[in-house]
Design a binder for these strands. Structure first.
Lengths: 187, 187
DNA sequence: ACTATACAAGTTAGGCACAAACTGTCTAGT
DNA sequence: ACTAGACAGTTTGTGCCTAACTTGTATAGT
């Protein structure tokens, strides 16, 4: 008998996840076109044919990398917003930080641009995930506010977050401005 | 004796202003580089050498066009915010509409990008005018709110406006979203 | 106070050949 | 379940040339 197939599958998925994570940062640094499969393989410490063993093509790899990052972000945001002890404004700020603040820094600040610039390469995830984020934030706010104004507060906060992302260069600056906006809008 | 020099000078300035206005829309359509002096002259219904009689170079023409537009915007915004009868939120919305909503439409939506893409061509106007806009809005809000929170409300509104500008395609959509934000932030 | 025409100097665009790099696949090896 | 190496077919970058265009100016005319 060989090794337990379940753990073997888990090992596969771990490897895939690790490759996708490093691949996304590589894509973020150089953009989709200028990132070669060789560079991705080197960053993941595997051979280039081995990379093709894990992913059928560069395009599907890119899709998987973005999808994984978005799903992990959504999962983390669900956790953050569900934490019962912390005040609402604190949870909202942390949710936005995970959603947008992560992608402000000089290194990975182009992930958002990367996604926006290649809409055809990515499936419906790019459309549905922001909507999911909006739903989560709206639900969290609706616990403390009338539900009708919760959607308006959420939409305004999302716009504000986008604006701040364009105005600031560091994650700290983004957070500072966002905290003010959340404080003003959640009263 | 020849014609009155004062009226002659005024005529010059009117012609200059009209040329600058059409030149700005032409720049907005094709960008700075791809707009030729011939096109600008044609749009202004004068000859190309005549254009050089009014402006020494393409660069100074561009600078003058942007400067004039910004100064006219600021002047109009001063008028809007100073109108005593209208409610504050209405005046704020109209001020932002003049400041940013004007540059959302499909035709002239790239004026902001145009300005941001050519920082070296433009002098300090591009830095000082947004600051002036912020000061005007802050002063208007400070009439109804504690001055300390007025600056924070203004900064947040500016960020929100930038975000909405990136999310919407039409001036009407921009206005709709902005009105919600102003209503939420001015309570 | 302009227009029309023309011109020099410089920049840009298009075409084309050729070298380099990239993707996706295969084979052999461990 | 991989790695190393190699390979075909295609895409991409580069150097170079020429034609077209652009800027700024000058001249003559009204």
């Amino acid at each position: 008998m060989t090794a337990d197939p379940t753990s073997a599958t888990t090992g596969d998925q771990d490897r895939r996840a690790a490759v996708l994570e490093s691949a996304l940062t590589t894509f973020a640094r150089f953009g989709y076109r200028k990132t070669s499969m060789e560079e991705i393989a080197r960053a993941a410490d595997i051979s280039r044919p081995g990379l093709y063993f894990l992913f059928a093509s560069k395009e599907s790899l890119f899709r998987a990398a973005v999808t994984q990052a978005l799903e992990q972000d959504i999962a983390a945001i669900e956790q953050i917003l569900a934490a019962p002890g912390r005040p609402l404004s604190r949870r909202i700020v942390e949710a936005f930080d995970r959603w947008a603040g992560r992608y402000v820094g000089p290194l990975t600040r182009d992930v958002a641009v990367l996604i926006e610039d290649n809409p055809t390469l990515l499936g419906a995830v790019v459309e549905t995930t922001p909507r999911r984020f909006e739903e989560l934030v709206t639900a969290a706010i609706a616990a403390d506010s009338p539900p009708e104004s919760a959607t308006r507060i959420t939409q305004t906060l999302i716009s504000t977050s986008i604006g701040i992302k364009h105005q600031t260069d560091t994650r700290a600056a983004y957070l500072e401005r966002l905290e003010i906006a959340v404080e003003l809008l959640l009263l």
